[in-house]
């Protein structure tokens, strides 16, 4: 078992619990929405780079995914806020 995968899993679980907690504890406006979406993007990147081993792939594949998730979060935030 790869140690780094275990750390990634622990991080993902904690971030998931944190985002759920934030969404239930605060009114979802402005900062809280940005926080939840940024954490979701961070989790997305952990899964892609660590579990899917994108970190080992050519830079083009890595930048494409980074470009995708940044554009997605940016557009959603632009529409919402």
């Amino acid at each position: 078992m790869e140690k780094i995968n275990v750390f990634a899993l622990i991080g993902l679980v904690l971030l998931t619990l944190l985002t759920s907690r934030v969404s239930q504890s605060y009114e979802m406006h402005g900062t809280a929405t940005v926080f939840v979406l940024l954490l979701a993007a961070f989790k997305f990147l952990i899964v892609a780079f660590q579990f899917m081993e994108l970190k080992k792939a050519h830079k083009v594949w890595q930048w494409m995914l980074l470009g995708f998730i940044s554009s997605f979060v940016f557009i959603v935030l632009m529409v919402l806020c």
Partner: peptide, 10 residues
């Protein structure tokens, strides 16, 4: 991971 925050959380 994209669906969950947009549908459930925000």
């Amino acid at each position: 991971l994209l669906l969950f925050p947009v549908l459930y959380l925000i």
